[in-house]
Design a protein around this nucleic acid. Structure first.
Lengths: 332, 332
DNA sequence: CTGAAAGCGCTTACAG
DNA sequence: CTGAAAGCGCTTACAG
């Protein structure tokens, strides 16, 4: 029914091997032969069967992107960028939502066996950092985001300690003295960003007040809104807040608006991720802006180098460039 | 290297066929045989080779979701829901970003041949409605969103005319007389939603003012912000705006905030899609809220019925339930 | 209920 | 530079 390689070969009057050579761009084919084959391919509207090819080659040209959720803006934007980067390099991305569940993440770390993919880009959430130190998967895997030192995985990530330090220092430079942090709990992201936050406070000679560090239960708007409510209930509320991602910051802004407080006059707010929502919010949100295109392209390139065996170095650790985008929520 | 079916068979002391039967849940296998096989599978940690299976069966259990972009919130939320729905039904979703390009959409309509997928869920943007009337693809395809009557595709969509009518009528009920529309241009979405908008105005006996219908160049925040600026520059600006999606509405809200206008007192705003950003915005955004889980589940179920041949009816047209969520941007 | 064998459509040594 | 043939790991008639 479907046209096969042999149909093309028959029509072009050459062997199957020759057609395969043309399709796979092997050298040493006369222009005339190539033209004949290409004409036959066009005439029959032939498309190679991907299953057969991957069965034979042991490669599918699929890679997986395993993220906690594709519905939240940061991962949506990241997924879009990785998907484009992969397409440019001729591979297809298959997005796996772990929902932050330990079982799903274990499956990913185990190489998603039987899943027809050549490698994985993985943004862990539930998995404890310690579990990430040994490479159990049979497939190449590139880690996104924080990870304790000494890990054995390739990784692409922002220097979160430095970025968090910059964000906090920016608030200090505005003359703020009681700077809160939202998102310190749970994940390794929280721990790493808190480190930068504390470092900046210390440098500025500001006291470290545990009451100003809010853990919350997650990294979404409702969590930010709830944490901000807690902060406002304090006898001595903060005059600035560094939120460990933009969703938390947008939730916090909502609480501040409800409370009738002015941003940045009463409370300055800084986020992390630079998602589009923040740029259009009123007030627009100051945020750490990682170069997502760079991140996406580097992660895909690194993974493909591992898959093809072009890169046999020990694990690589790439640092994503970022900027602090200063906007209305912390202006002046 | 990798364990194969025959390895399992050898270890279990049965034929390859028997192992295949167990894996595929065929009946007529004694409990004892099944137990033996399952023990061997567990012992060898065997996972079937997906390429071989799909080559042989002609099915991959992959479906494609072709959308303009996965980075924008509506599609991100939709993609997440479809991905979950597919997982529940044992198939994997592969997301294809068309970027709204005609070539990419043509490829989708052509069945994404050679792409190892059993069927497609497609949200068209660039393709002219007329092109959507004949089924050129060899693979089952479910269309999402507006489409002219008489098409030959399966489809799952909100009744946009009715929903737009409801949104506009709601603004009328608030006593607004100059109700603008943003997003009327270009796509068929714009045309269909304008129809409902005009219908509601007519029912209310309100004049139809072409100056209040803004096309804009797209459906993102900057487009909404720009259109709102145009409206405010009018000699007689509107007292309400119905934006054809939430991103447009969020952009419009930003312009209104910049202009120092109060929402909803000076201008009431309603959106469409009910993305999470709108729910947390200040003011929170009134919006048409389609049941995305219903949409996702229905689209996947319909597609799988076509793939398996369980459904041989002529094309189906499913209508997604929706609600008008009234929030601060149009309250009182 | 189970076994032996063919075949899905490719790619790749192996000859020529 | 090209051809004939094996084989990737499954599933599925076909026998028994």
């Amino acid at each position: 029914m479907a046209t096969r390689l042999s149909d093309v070969a028959a029509r072009a009057g050459v062997s199957v091997k020759t057609v395969s050579n043309v399709i796979n761009d092997y050298p040493h084919i006369t222009a005339r032969t190539r033209a004949k084959v290409e004409a036959a391919i066009a005439a029959l509207d032939y498309k190679p069967n991907v299953s057969a090819r991957s069965l034979r080659k042991g490669r599918s040209d699929f890679i997986a992107l395993a993220i906690p959720e594709m519905g939240s803006p940061y991962f949506a934007e990241l997924g879009a960028a990785i998907s484009r980067a992969a397409k440019r390099r001729g591979v297809t991305v298959l997005i796996d939502q772990t929902e932050g569940e330990a079982d799903a993440e274990r499956f990913v770390l185990d190489g998603m066996r039987g899943q027809l993919i050549d490698g994985i880009i993985f943004s862990p959430l539930a998995t404890a950092p310690a579990k990430l130190t040994s490479d159990s998967t049979g497939k190449p895997l590139v880690l996104l985001g924080e990870r304790p030192a000494g890990g054995q995985f390739d990784r692409v990530a922002v220097d979160s300690v430095q970025a968090s330090h910059d964000a906090t220092s920016h608030l200090v430079s505005l003359g703020r003295r009681r700077i809160a942090a939202i998102g310190v709990g749970g994940t390794s992201t929280g721990a790493v960003r808190r480190k930068g936050y504390r470092k900046a406070l210390k440098e500025a000679g500001l006291p470290h007040d545990p009451a100003l560090e809010l853990a919350g239960t997650g990294y979404h708007r409702p969590d930010g809104a709830a944490s901000m409510r807690e902060l406002l209930a304090l006898p001595n509320p903060p005059d600035a807040v560094f939120c460990f991602n933009d969703l938390l910051a947008l939730g916090a802004l909502r609480t501040l608006a409800d409370a009738g407080l002015r941003v940045p006059e009463d409370v300055a707010v800084v986020g992390f991720d630079d998602i589009e929502d923040g740029r259009y919010h009123s007030p627009s949100l100051t945020s750490i802006s990682p170069d997502k295109e760079w991140l996406a392209d580097s992660a895909v390139a690194l993974l493909l180098d591992r898959i093809t065996g072009n890169d046999n170095s020990t694990h690589r650790d790439l640092t994503v460039p970022y900027k602090l985008e200063i906007r209305e929520s912390s202006a002046g």
